[in-house]
Deep mutational scan, measured.
Amino acid sequence: DNLVIALHSYEPSHDGDLGFEKGEQLRILEQSGEWWKAQSLTTGQEGFIPFNFVAKA
Rank of each mutant, 00 (worst) to 15 (best):
D1M: 11
N2F: 15
N2A: 08
N2L: 14
N2E: 08
N2S: 09
L3A: 02
V4E: 01
V4F: 15
A6V: 07
A6E: 02
L7F: 06
L7D: 02
H8N: 08
S9Y: 06
S9N: 09
S9Q: 07
Y10V: 05
Y10M: 04
Y10D: 00
Y10H: 06
P12H: 05
S13E: 14
S13F: 12
S13T: 14
H14S: 10
D15K: 13
G16I: 06
G16F: 10
G16E: 07
D17A: 14
D17Q: 15
D17S: 10
L18C: 05
L18N: 01
L18R: 02
L18V: 04
G19E: 05
G19Q: 09
G19L: 05
G19A: 11
G19I: 04
F20P: 00
F20D: 00
F20T: 01
E21P: 02
K22T: 06
G23I: 01
G23N: 04
E24S: 03
Q25E: 10
L26Q: 01
L26R: 00
R27A: 06
R27W: 11
R27F: 10
R27T: 06
R27S: 04
I28G: 02
L29I: 12
L29M: 07
L29R: 03
E30R: 05
S32Y: 13
S32M: 11
S32D: 12
G33K: 04
E34L: 14
W36C: 10
W36A: 10
W36E: 00
K37I: 11
K37T: 07
K37E: 03
K37Y: 15
A38C: 07
Q39W: 05
Q39D: 01
Q39M: 11
S40C: 06
S40W: 03
S40Q: 04
T42Y: 07
G44L: 09
Q45Y: 09
Q45P: 00
E46S: 12
E46Y: 12
G47I: 03
F48Q: 06
F48W: 15
F48H: 06
I49R: 00
I49C: 05
P50D: 05
P50V: 05
P50A: 03
P50N: 07
F51K: 15
F51P: 14
F51R: 15
F53N: 04
A55E: 13
K56P: 15
K56M: 14
A57R: 07
A57S: 10
A57M: 15
